[in-house]
Design a protein around this nucleic acid. Structure first.
Length: 563
RNA sequence: GUCUCGAUAGCUCAGCUGGAUAGAGCAACGGUCUUCUAAACCGUGGGCCGUGGGUUCGAAUCCCACUCGAGGCACCA
């Protein structure tokens, strides 16, 4: 029986004439601070029935409640506060966590259903920016969280490896580039050509015609065009892999836009068969006015297909391939309408699984309040940010723990952990203005703070020299440990909530709160003192480390044992 | 113009399904390393929760209007 149920059962006998168990459960709340108890029952709603002041009702009812299962039951103002039995609670909780270890908090909401996650998806020949980082780390964390609750995620890197920009790129390369330069530093130089193209085409509009011609050649399978495209794609992907390795993120599929080139004709045919296509201003559209949306542009007036056509093909391909129970797209909030359109067209096509498609939007990263633009060369390169963070972590280690073993590994874990955690700690939809100092901060509400807390816990366990598995009694009635214990018990609920809201920040916030409570605890309480509760204290330290490590892992952040 | 998202301390943000004095971190100031790593802990100051209405016993939280900011609004993705 969970703790809240105990409270309901205690209240039921004195309230059964007025409220049933479900109604009582709905009213129960958790007080802000634990000196007001662990659960509280507000008496406001009873005021009308009893025609008495809520304070009076609370004072009258409290003594009538059977408090056997509690430390105490007490009326405070208009509330009846319940205090849990700390000894019993701590014993059960710590035993559970130590037994279940990394499986503590597992759930089976997903029943092994597959969930493709469209994430990261950088564009070939362009650098991975801070914006891609968001999609990448949010997608990766959601994959971890969904796995924890019983789904089978499929991480798909839907590479931007097709489109008119390749025409521009080929023109730029042929005019200003060289094989040697691309080989030496592929992305930097390819980006240079692309940016230069957009500068030059202001004054020389004929460049746009050349670019269009090259893209037409590419689509037609022209040897030179294909050769260049294949080469650009290969060297770009190699560069991307460096970053994914740094982040320790792996994908299950790299099927990008080009993969769907030969799958769009079928989609167009299906739309025609279902009589959904209409001519409008020379283009083929699906009218979505019934959904209060702009029409979906399936074919341009020149006959070429568009973004949404490709995404329709991809959605259908994923349904056929993975038989998904949900299909997620971790893509910026500015594409909200696009995904509404995508779902609407699929609905019109008669696919009821359109409802299982979820756009997971996230806020924009700006610099000085302005949107970044690759075309203008205004980008924040993720690789630089990660390298800066790792360098800074190195300096910290040299200053604070110069004798540490595995310095390089720890510097990586900490530096990259800081960047990833910073991205995940706030609600997805918040915009954030990029500020390097903020991103690589190691103090306060940061990833390294959580990592450090865990390292300290590990340090205590190393020095304890006790085998926790030999132990049977985990009773810890110490008041100062109470907030930590209660919070450890919340972990499973946090995972469920994060999975339902597709919100990694729930886990990040939880980890910060747990770290803070634990820091406070061990700053004031000596763990390694030989007394009756020492084994239980160590069990709690081990549990905290277990849960912090798990939380960080769900976010895709490593937890070094020393730092 | 229209739709979406947002507005809480100097800055960055929490505040779960409305409930007990609105909380953190950073920044500022002041304490704590012969004792489990000071990437930590403790303390001080700082807020008509954008504005105006409404619903409710009770609103930062729900509803309406307005102001301001960001983003989207068919032949880019």
């Amino acid at each position: 029986m969970n703790e809240q149920e105990l409270v309901v059962q205690a209240l039921l006998p004195v309230l059964k004439d007025h409220l049933d168990a479900a109604a009582i459960a709905k009213l129960i709340e958790v007080p802000k601070t634990s000196d007001l108890g662990d659960y509280a029952f507000p008496t406001f709603t009873l005021a009308k029935i009893f025609r008495q002041a809520p304070q009076q009702i609370a004072a009258d009812l409290a003594p009538k409640i059977n408090a056997d299962n509690f430390e105490k039951v007490q009326a405070v103002g208009p509330y009846i506060n319940f205090f849990l039995d700390k000894a019993q609670f701590s014993h059960q909780l710590l035993q559970t966590i130590l037994q279940q270890a990394e499986h503590y908090g597992d759930a089976n909401l997903g029943q092994q259903g597959q969930v493709p996650i469209d994430m990261s998806s950088p564009n070939i020949a362009k650098p991975i920016s801070m914006g891609h980082l968001r999609s990448t780390v949010i997608g990766n964390s959601l994959a971890n969280i969904l796995t924890k609750v019983g789904y089978k995620p499929v991480k798909i890197n839907h590479l931007g490896d097709w489109g008119t920009q390749f025409g521009k790129l080929i023109v730029g390369y042929k005019k200003w580039g060289s094989e040697a330069a691309v080989k030496a530093d592929p992305i930097t130089n390819l980006l240079k050509y692309y940016v230069k193209f957009h500068q030059e085409d202001q004054a020389h509009p004929e460049l746009d015609d050349e670019a269009r011609d090259w893209f037409v050649k590419l689509e037609a399978g022209d040897d030179e065009a294909i050769k260049l495209w294949t080469w650009f794609r290969k060297v770009s992907l190699q560069e991307f892999m460096k970053i994914y390795d740094m982040l320790d993120i792996q994908f299950d599929s790299y099927k990008g836009e080009a993969f769907y080139n030969d799958k769009m004709a079928e989609v167009v045919q299906m739309l025609e068969d279902k009589k959904l296509l209409k001519k409008s201003q020379g283009a083929e559209i699906v009218d979505l006015s019934a959904y209060n949306l702009n029409p979906a542009l399936i074919k341009k007036s020149d006959g070429a297909t568009l973004y949404i056509t490709r995404d329709l093909a991809a959605a259908i391909y994923r349904k056929r391939t993975y038989h998904f129970v949900q299909s997620l797209y971790v893509v910026g909030n500015e594409q909200r309408d696009h995904f509404k359109q995508l779902k609407a067209v699929l609905k019109e096509m008669g696919f009821d699984w359109a409802d299982d498609i979820h756009h997971i939007p996230f806020g924009l990263i700006t610099e000085n309040g302005k949107k970044l633009s690759t075309r203008q060369g205004r980008v924040i390169l993720l690789e630089n940010v990660l390298n800066d963070a790792v360098d800074l972590a190195h300096k910290q280690i040299d200053a604070k723990n110069p004798d540490l073993a595995n310095k390089d590994q720890v510097a990586n874990d900490v530096g990259i952990g800081a960047v990833v955690f910073h991205d995940l700690k706030n609600e997805r939809l918040n915009n954030f203005d990029f500020n390097l100092e903020d991103v690589v901060r190691f103090e306060g509400e940061t990833g390294p703070y959580v990592q450090y807390t865990n390292a300290r816990a590990q340090s205590i366990l190393r020095k304890a020299g006790v085998d926790l598995k030999q132990q049977t009694d985990y009773t810890l009635a110490d008041r100062s440990a109470w907030d930590v214990l209660k919070q450890l018990a919340e972990f499973p609920d946090m995972i469920i909530r994060a999975s339902k809201e597709y919100e990694p920040s729930v886990i990040a916030k939880y980890a910060l709160r747990l770290a803070k409570n634990f820091n406070k605890y061990y700053a004031n309480t000596k763990v390694l003192v030989a007394d009756a509760e020492k084994p239980a204290r160590l069990a709690m330290v081990a549990s905290v480390s277990q849960v912090l490590t798990q939380s960080l892992a769900l976010l895709g952040v490593h937890a070094p044992k020393e730092m």
